[in-house]
Design a protein around this nucleic acid. Structure first.
Length: 325
DNA sequence: CAAATTTGACCTAG
DNA sequence: CTAGGTCAAATTTG
């Protein structure tokens, strides 16, 4: 297991490059669509696609540069948002044990993430199962929020060292709206890996407009008035867990209509610009340029393909972020 | 009975 | 000091 490290890195980076390249291709296609089918305000979209392309290009060049450089640098810089390791604490994330001290004495064994970790937020009208197994570990009343915030971690935190975490909070009652913020990335091998696009919605449903708003740095929360929009992503997932139980008072019946669940996704990342190679930085760079609105099915499909590329290479690269070993 | 949730205490970043 | 993220004992669920 442990001897596989460099190989895995190489392999994963190659895959990442592959995915990026594919994304670049898709972005090119999208650009073509924009430039030919839209007359008036297509320039905005086209501009954005150009930016996307640029991001893809620079990401690729960075990755390629690293490839030719040296692999040994990777593990150090790859630790993106996990703030915990200053170096003085030998304990590392992911391993279970903390029980050595008396049960009541939890001093020092808290590790708190917050502020400087990449997060990915999704607003959705229903509780959407993202295909991962989550375990609720807390609930908090938040100061100016009407509804409590629920904390989930990956079920495989201890058996597989998966550091993924999410927070779910209802943000609206009337049309039930929930904001889910994801932290960290799944390193667990989970069966329902349902991560990407189902997107088989037939004729009708998809014509809703898509807004992908990925921002990084500074602006923690979404102030953009428009960042709630329908997106045809994440439609059909298998099991809807009951994340609705307590944090979300009534409405126990969340019958998620397939194809219909809309959500808005955006990425928030900290503002530290590491000067070294930082996969997540690269990705977020790509992501941050993916801000586009489109109104046709084709466009949303294209965007989805791009996002799939970005997403999967995100997974690829960050897979070795915390290798548990 | 094991796994998941609840819930108040605990802890820490800001 | 406080808000909010995490822990873990108690409780519930399957």
């Amino acid at each position: 297991m442990e001897s596989l490290w460099p190989e895995t890195l190489l392999y994963n980076r190659r895959k990442a490059i592959e995915q990026l390249t594919r994304g670049q291709e898709y972005a090119n296609q999208l650009k073509a669509i924009f430039s030919e089918s839209i007359g008036d305000d297509g320039s905005v979209g086209e501009d954005l696609v150009t930016k996307i392309l640029n991001s893809f290009m620079s990401s690729l060049s960075i990755l390629n540069g690293v490839e030719s450089d040296e692999v040994s640098q990777l593990p150090a810089s790859i630790h993106v948002g996990s703030p915990c390791c200053d170096g003085r604490k030998s304990e590392d994330s992911g391993e279970s044990i903390r029980s050595t001290s008396t049960m009541k004495d939890r001093k020092g064994c808290y590790k708190r993430r917050k502020t400087s970790q990449y997060s990915w937020t999704r607003d959705s009208p229903d509780l959407i199962d993202d295909g991962h197994a989550w375990r609720k570990y807390g609930q908090k009343v938040i100061l100016n929020a009407k509804y409590p915030r629920n904390y989930f971690r990956c079920t495989h935190k201890f058996d597989q060292g998966c550091q993924a975490t999410k927070q779910v909070q209802r943000i609206e009652e009337e049309p039930p709206m929930h904001r889910t913020t994801y932290y960290g990335h799944h390193t667990c091998k989970n069966l329902l890996k349902a991560s990407h696009l189902i997107l088989d919605a037939p004729d009708h449903v998809i014509d809703s407009s898509v807004l992908l708003s990925f921002s990084n740095g500074n602006g923690h929360h979404n102030n953009h008035p428009t960042n709630r929009q329908d997106a045809p992503f994440f439609s059909t997932f298998q099991s809807i867990k009951q994340e609705c139980k307590d944090g979300f008072p009534h409405d126990h019946n969340n019958h998620l209509t397939h194809n219909q669940s809309s959500s808005s996704d955006y990425l928030v990342s900290p503002d530290d610009h590491a000067s070294k190679f930082d996969p997540a930085d690269v990705i977020s760079g790509v992501n941050s340029s993916c801000t586009a609105t489109s109104t046709t099915t084709h466009h949303s499909l294209d965007m989805d393909m791009i996002m799939t590329s970005v997403d999967s290479q995100f997974d690829d690269i960050l897979e070795f972020e915390c290798f548990d070993g």
